[in-house]
Design a protein around this nucleic acid. Structure first.
Length: 879
DNA sequence: AGCACGCCGACT
DNA sequence: GTCGGCGTGCTC
């Protein structure tokens, strides 16, 4: 039997991704696809994943003809596959679509820290051992001693890294060369465990239960009485101090002796032996109670709680009533979190219909047809989550399991708690802010089938959940679903759709503001469109637009307009809450006329120009075209044209000055660095310890804060004027989502948007909560300019420490691309750029990029040979 | 990636 | 002369 393997070292070898090994007969029966195995690779041991098991030896023959002799795989590292068959199939697609090697793709689908590290150790050779054995029986005392020393060291092995550290690189290398020639020491390859480890701790376990335990108790109580009578008979005077200590300890303990009648009714103990027995009985009580209360007792904690010494506790172990053993400790990301049980709510008619559509699709899949993905377009607050939960409950009842993907930020909030509360103990959470250990424990629970629902960020899609029956992507328009830093640069939505196709299960895409691309697909019939038009319990808040040009003309230069000031005053007077939102994404500052709202756009791309203060030029970060900075507004000749940038700190200072008594909370990347900080901020605001929350787009997503009656958008202009084709979509989404935060409670809410561009169609449509109209206008622009979804984009980025070499390579590469495009005869396909990247210098490296655009670029990608270039397929931004 | 091998500059 | 830099090639 043969096996095709992807190896970690072979990750970089794109030409020969799969290596073939022979399977030793002893392992044949145990071998499965997706298992992690150890294989010999060159002179070392490497980790691999089983891609395919080949029954016939035809492949072996053809490899032999090429002069390649097959080697045996070394061992199976983990019996349970790390990836399920459908995930391997997904990996194949990901690798092809996102132009990433198969091995790279597969290994990046595994939970972090799982992979083992390959290294070398030095050990005594077999020859040296045999020699030592011979000498051990020698007459010569010193020889025997040497033999003994040698044997003592057989277990200890020295790893080569350590040797290098101890001796320095060159000395070590020299020594290793000598070792190679010596026949006493051998250099052996081995694998060491990755960072993801099972956490063990000592735990006390009750070995007897029920009846048997009662019998033991009686025996101990009998012994206690016996000890007491002995003590009285011998007139032993007990240490009164220790006796009283025991009683205080026992009564201070929440699960004190009081639970069993015998202990409560027992008279104060007189003898020392009796005292110990009484404490042992208390220990048994605590252990029994912990049986139904989750976390087990460690010996140390139990001793502390009962005043026993470990020696005295071990007496119970000797009697085989308890055992002290190393137990697996689960690291639970939700530990200590209040998870209020959430009951299914009664659905509205709209919700009922949506749920039915999902379940019909499930049934369709069961009958062998691939169900259409469902685009669930529901306004903010229309109850999408409840539909997800009930759909999940329905498939769980059929013995299946489901995944809900949420954008990164939502993981710190209420959504997770709601899901976890609905399916207690049957939910796993996966996202990047968990520790490697927490993630590993969740991953293993998932793999073992201990959960029904996985909720997490995009990578949760790769959790090996058996019997997957439904995939839900909440807020499907979110950019967080696109991976761009690491290969493969996949979009979780696309990956989920593929998985749905492979497994014939429905994929539900939910959003109040679907991605333009998604809505387009729904229109063309690729998705089934399901709409929820009504909010539950409340209505959508009215949106008021404040024209900042008018404010300026009236002499009000503050960043807080009179209307917003008025609104905030009201909120504070009424003891309600407000959110002030400011978009500050990127360092980009756009050029804006403060009189007429004119923004400078690139004449080739219709994308806002960015001002570069160092070179004093306006530049298009899309095509690279440069122009002179403007001194007067081309539209109204005003000199009030300047670049525009604004921060949350500035807003905070201004508001504090306006309302000295108001309690402010700032929420952005500077004040909330990790998930605990996020939660703490949210808790503070939700519990009304602050009146006004000031933040960036982080606060726009999915928060359900009933106390908020006013949402102010300090400036919509930065969002509108990001120099990217997708900025209208992002602006619309953002404004709609932010507005959706208002008026979710009993008080009516309203929204104030400040802008220099009140006529902009994004602001206009968002203020009327009119997705449809926004979509019509945006899709037309996309079509006119050939932006996605009408053409595919691929971004190529090159980085180099030398700016000129970087630019030069970019130019040369763009010529090569153009050449390939022509040779392949690709129609309607071209290259935009090269241009410096949005952040031209990152970690002392210059970055240049270009965009290839065309109806389908995969033919191009197949011929592109650019190992030094980052290739991002369907980039989330053209910047 | 890791680790060989291999071919040129700055020091004991 | 040796030490040590990192360019190139290989791994079923």
């Amino acid at each position: 039997m043969l096996v095709e393997v992807l190896t970690t070292a072979g990750r970089w070898n794109t030409e020969q991704p799969l290596l073939t090994y022979r399977v030793p007969t002893a392992l044949e029966a145990r071998l499965r696809r997706g298992q992690l195995i150890a294989v010999p690779y060159g002179d070392r041991l490497d980790e691999g994943i089983v891609w395919r098991v080949l029954a016939d030896d035809e492949a072996a023959i053809s490899l032999l003809e090429e002069g390649i002799e097959l080697r045996d795989l070394s061992s199976i590292l983990d019996e349970t596959p790390a990836l399920l068959p459908h995930q391997l199939e997904l990996a194949r697609w990901l690798s092809e679509y996102y132009a990433t090697s198969l091995a790279h793709t597969v290994f990046n689908m595994l939970t972090p820290g799982l992979l083992q590290r390959s290294r070398f150790v030095l050990k005594l050779s077999q020859e040296a051992l045999e020699d030592a054995m011979r000498s051990a029986s020698s007459q010569d005392a010193s020889l025997r001693l040497r033999a003994l020393l040698g044997l003592l060291h057989t277990d200890g092995s020295l790893d080569v890294e350590q040797l290098k550290k101890m001796l320095g690189k060159t000395k070590a290398q020299q020594l290793l060369k000598e070792i190679k020639q010596s026949n006493l020491i051998v250099r052996e390859p081995e694998l060491v465990e990755g960072r993801a480890k099972i956490r063990l701790r000592r735990a006390v376990r009750l070995l007897v239960k029920g009846e048997e335990l009662l019998i033991w108790r009686e025996q101990l109580e009998e012994r206690l009485r016996h000890a007491e009578s002995e003590a009285t008979a011998g007139s032993e005077v007990p240490h009164s101090v220790s006796a009283s200590q025991a009683t205080t300890k026992a009564s201070a303990n929440p699960w004190s002796l009081g639970t069993t009648a015998s202990a409560t009714l027992a008279p104060p103990v007189q003898s020392k032996a009796g005292l110990i027995i009484q404490r042992q009985l208390a220990a048994l009580d605590l252990l029994q109670q912990s049986l139904n209360r989750g976390s087990p007792w460690t010996p140390a904690a139990l001793c502390r709680a009962t005043d026993l010494t470990e020696r005295q506790l071990r007496q119970l172990e000797d009697e085989r009533i308890i055992s002290i053993e190393r137990q697996e400790l689960r690291r639970d990301p939700l530990q200590g979190r209040a998870l209020p049980a959430s009951q299914p709510l009664t659905l509205t008619q709209e919700q009922e219909q949506a749920l039915r559509a999902v379940l019909d699709a499930v049934r369709e899949g069961e009958q062998g047809t691939t169900p259409k993905p469902i685009l669930l377009h529901g306004v903010t607050g229309s109850g999408k989550t409840e539909i997800y939960l009930q759909a999940l409950a329905a498939i769980i009842a059929q013995g299946k399991r489901g995944v809900i993907l949420v954008p990164e930020i939502a993981l710190t909030t209420q959504a997770v708690q709601r899901v976890a509360g609905r399916f207690p103990d049957r939910v796993a959470i996966i996202h990047s802010e968990l520790s490697v250990g927490e993630r590993y424990d969740e991953w293993r629970r998932i793999r073992a089938g201990q959960v029904d629902v996985v909720i997490g960020s995009r990578s949760a899609l790769f959790a090996p959940l058996p019997d997957l029956g439904l995939i839900i992507i909440d807020e499907e328009h979110e950019a967080a679903y696109k991976q761009s830093e690491l290969k493969p640069t996949y979009h979780a939505r696309e990956a989920a759709l593929k998985l749905g196709e492979i497994l014939r299960i429905p994929v539900v895409l939910g959003s109040a503001t679907p991605a333009v691309e998604s809505y387009h697909r729904a229109e063309r019939g690729r998705y089934q469109l399901v709409e929820l038009k009504g909010r539950i319990g409340t209505t959508l808040p009215p949106v008021e637009i404040v024209d900042l040009r008018v404010e300026l003309r009236a002499g009000h230069t503050s960043i807080i307009s009179r209307r917003l000031h008025e609104g905030l005053t009201n909120v504070l007077e009424q003891g309600q809450q407000a959110i002030l939102f400011l978009n500050r994404r990127g360092a980009a500052s756009c050029i804006l006329c403060r009189d007429c709202g004119y923004t400078a756009l690139c004449e080739h791309c219709d994308i806002p120009l960015t001002y570069h203060s160092t070179e004093r030029v306006l530049m298009c970060h899309y095509c690279g075209a440069q122009s002179k900075p403007l001194r007067y507004c081309p539209a109204c000749q005003s000199a009030e044209i300047r670049y525009f940038g604004l921060g949350t700190e500035k807003v905070q200072r201004t508001i504090q000055k306006m309302f000295p008594e108001a309690r402010l909370l700032r929420w952005d990347r500077d004040t909330a660095r990790n998930r605990h900080a996020h939660e703490a901020l949210l808790d503070r605001f939700a519990s009304r310890q602050a009146d006004i929350l000031i933040g960036t787009q982080m606060i726009a997503k999915g928060l359900d804060l009933p106390g908020v009656t006013l949402v102010g958008v300090v400036s919509a202009d930065i969002a509108l004027n990001l120099p990217d084709y997708s900025s209208p979509e992002r602006a619309f989404t953002l404004l709609t989502q932010v507005a959706g935060r208002a008026g979710r409670g009993s008080e009516a809410g309203h929204v104030i948007i400040q802008t220099f561009n009140p006529e902009h169609f994004c602001i206009d449509t968002a203020s009327r909560h009119n997705y449809d109209e926004f979509y019509r206008m945006e899709i037309e622009t996309r079509e006119r300019y050939g932006y996605p979804p009408f053409r595919q984009f691929v971004k190529f980025t090159y980085s180099h420490s030398n700016r000129h070499r970087c630019q030069l390579e970019a130019m040369r590469f763009s010529e090569r691309l153009t050449h390939w495009i022509n040779r392949l005869g690709l129609v309607n396909t071209d290259i935009v750029g090269p241009a410096p990247a949005m952040l031209e210098r990152v970690r002392n490296k210059y970055r240049w990029q270009m965009i290839a655009r065309g109806p389908d670029l995969h033919r191009l990608l197949r011929v592109v040979d650019a190992p030094d270039w980052e290739i991002d397929i369907d980039p989330i931004s053209a910047l």
